[in-house]
Simulated scan of single mutants.
Amino acid sequence: MEEPANVSSILTLQGYNLPPDAVIPAFLFASLGYMIILFCNLLLIITIIRNKSLHQPMYLLLLNLPINDLIGTTALFPQMIKQILLDVKTLPHSSCVTQAFFLHVYGTGTVLILSAMAYDRYIAICCPLKYNVIMTNSHLMKVITVMWLTNLTLISVLFYLLLRLPRCRSLMAHTYCDNPSLLTLVCADTSINNIYGLFTTALTQVIANGTVLYTYLQILVACFRNKGSDTKNKALQTCATHLIVFLLLECLGLFTIISSRIKNIPPDLRRLIGVSTLMFPPTVNPIIYGLKTKEIREKVIHMFKSKIFPS
């Protein structure tokens, strides 16, 4: 459906409403945060790609996580930094839709990738003798392909349903663009959109929570049955690392979903929760997996040493 002729193609976002003396500190904080995320995630990607010893299912699945994190942060941070420094509150509708699309790809992708990683750890710990038979290169490629195709299909349908509706408003209710904020600009029945949005959220949550709950229960049972303390400790450490990342994402995501549906929550708190969901996981993911994974940590140290002290 076509939009009314008098509707502007330029959207107005909610500002951060920072006092003048807080603009520069906020700009520096956001810029530094973005640079740290870029550096850590790119370092993790380069380390895995360059070292053939890391071309194993566990690390190739992990490789998808920093790639996905870079998609989400690059969709958010440049616009946020520009908005903070220059107090720019306008954005073309097409750019807003593009930002929202990739932010939703990031959110859905994260839970699917963590679910695939939980499945990999389950096979490795509970079925170690069958691991190489099950997690072949072809099977791994199928898992990764299904993961990304599912993500892109779910989000593409979500935005197709959004863009088919006429828009009669240009004032956004958020500091960045997402599907719920774009839906508030529509002047038509959004029941189908709301139902599909809840369906995709429920589907990804059932897949993620069901996979993680089942696999880690099985891993814990296998650990306590195994009398080897080294195997048990390594498995429990793997579980703890994965669960920290997963629970962090789930808690922040849940708060974001709840805050977008409760009108009594202060706008500043809603913005803080929304930005935190997109800022903290991409920051801690490469640090937790890079520092806590011995093989990756050793490769990173070796790579820096060879650059600083070439033989």
Rank of each mutant, 00 (worst) to 15 (best):
I288W: 10
F309G: 00
D87Y: 00
L249A: 12
L11A: 04
D120I: 06
V300M: 15
S259K: 02
G197F: 11
V111L: 12
N68T: 08
N17T: 05
S311K: 13
Q14A: 13
L112S: 01
V186E: 02
F29W: 03
T47K: 13
R297S: 11
C126N: 06
A240F: 15
L217T: 13
V133A: 13
H174I: 00
N226G: 06
N179C: 09
L140R: 12
D230E: 08
I134Y: 14
L62Q: 09
N68S: 10
I46R: 12
T98M: 10
D87S: 05
Q205I: 07
K305P: 00
I192D: 08
T47W: 09
L28W: 00
S95R: 00
T200G: 05
L217M: 12
S276N: 06
S138F: 11
M279D: 02
I49L: 15
L114P: 01
K52L: 13
Y59S: 07
I81Q: 05
Q14D: 12
C187Y: 12
V212Y: 03
T283R: 00
I71K: 02
F280C: 01
I144D: 03
V23L: 00
L203A: 14
I36D: 00
L38W: 02
N226Y: 05
L171F: 11
I296W: 15
Q83P: 03
V88D: 10
L18T: 02
F199D: 05
S53N: 15
T241M: 14
T277K: 03
R271M: 12
Y131T: 13
Q218M: 15
H93T: 06
L243T: 11
